[in-house]
Design a protein around this nucleic acid. Structure first.
Lengths: 221, 221
DNA sequence: CGCATTTTAGTAACAATGTCACAGAAGAAT
DNA sequence: ATTCTTCTGTGACATTGTTACTAAAATGCG
């Protein structure tokens, strides 16, 4: 890894050169295969993770086997839940899954502590990351509690759509994104299809009228 | 305040004497009147708060004016959201309300930073507090998304009941606790009443059969 | 005190979402 | 081609949320 990977991270770029070199020297790259579990269900890495490539999906599992996606960690962001595991020795109901091949810089706990102690800047970076995730969780709570499902689904479609205007996902997975039931999602997607907003085929949803979907997604918010 | 207020806080008791004296000297007591807003809607205190007496209710407001209670900060705990405001300069959709007369030790930002830098112990205390709240939020999300309302209501009744087996709250406030609607709560409470689990009068709910309520509250969990 | 006002609770009809129990269709595997 | 698995569609029904009211209980005031 080139030593200037740090520059990718907003909030770390302005660190002292000495701090930067400490980070670069004491860290190493970890790779995770697609769909591998990065933390959760007992296992937690003992490093502070800074994501270089790929995406980590953080999701909650209920005992009944239902799921809901909490947020995603993208390249250039840190994974605060691993930090939490690292420092607080708590275990979580949440788990982190590599959504694609993931590469991350891993800082050993000792180095992490050293940085926190030495650098005001690094400290701010870490706390900001925490705050950001808290905010994400607040948004999730507000959505689940108060937002209509058709609006949430429209938002999710826009969030997950790829460059070909498609979403490669089953109804079941979309339901897990929103913490809903498959039948509910099928019903709503069928209504969207009836309005010619989308076209469906097994495992993929194609957006035909992004304008109308966006209009629904932004009603009352 | 006697200088050994620190001992109230699990996780701070084992700090070095020098650190403790720093804390005691540089902090001062802040009081909040019942129902005053401690943070939220633009205002944030510029101090790290350690609660000595009283309870702070942290809740989320939606634009539509609906509410949901996220968690409560009790005496002996710290208020991490103010920390977050302090360090990350983000503003939140959440707000903290003094549920009773509240007394707290307030550490100025500079001292907070100093402590984080100097003390491994203090650092762990702060990160633990963050983790704890994250866990609380996960629990809230799981409840809202997957749990039946009658079960959640039963749990809430047991959580809020006082030493006289009563809850002093209106249906509206109970609905806000659970992020539901007043009518829904009225309906459920009426059913509980029909089963002789509770007695109701304007503004108070009395628990008559805690056993059955607990049985419901612990179904499938 | 009696009367108006405000707050709290009850009700019914309906809409939205979740659950259950299936059936059928599309791919995958053999 | 046939079986098997996964994905989607469907209808009936239960739960929760919404709307639009009414009624009852506390509060305040002349």
């Amino acid at each position: 890894m080139s030593p200037n990977w740090i520059e990718q991270f907003q909030g770390l770029a302005s660190l002292d050169a000495s701090i930067k070199s400490l980070m670069t020297q004491k860290s190493n790259i970890i790779s995770y295969a697609k769909n591998s579990v990065i933390f959760g269900s007992g296992k937690a890495p003992d490093h502070f993770l800074l994501l270089l490539e790929g995406t980590v999906r953080v999701q909650q599992l209920s005992e009944a086997g239902r799921e809901i996606v909490l947020y995603r960690v993208h390249a250039g962001q840190s994974c605060v839940l691993t930090t939490a595991c690292l420092l607080a020795y708590e275990d979580y109901a949440a788990e982190g899954i590599a959504e694609s091949e993931v590469k991350a810089m891993a800082l050993p706990r000792v180095v992490f502590n050293q940085l926190i102690a030495q650098s005001d800047e690094f400290r701010r970076f870490v706390f900001s990351a925490y705050s950001r995730r808290m905010t994400d969780l607040f948004a999730v709570i507000e959505d689940i509690a108060f937002q209509r499902m058709d609006i949430r689904l429209a938002q999710k479609l826009l969030e997950l759509v790829d460059e070909d205007a498609q979403i490669k996902s089953t109804h079941q997975k979309m339901a897990a994104e929103l913490g809903s039931a498959r039948e509910v999602i099928s019903r709503l997607l069928q209504e969207f299809q009836r309005r010619n907003w989308i076209a469906q085929s097994r495992g993929t949803i194609k957006l035909l009228n992004r304008g109308e979907i966006k209009k629904l997604a932004t009603t009352n918010s």
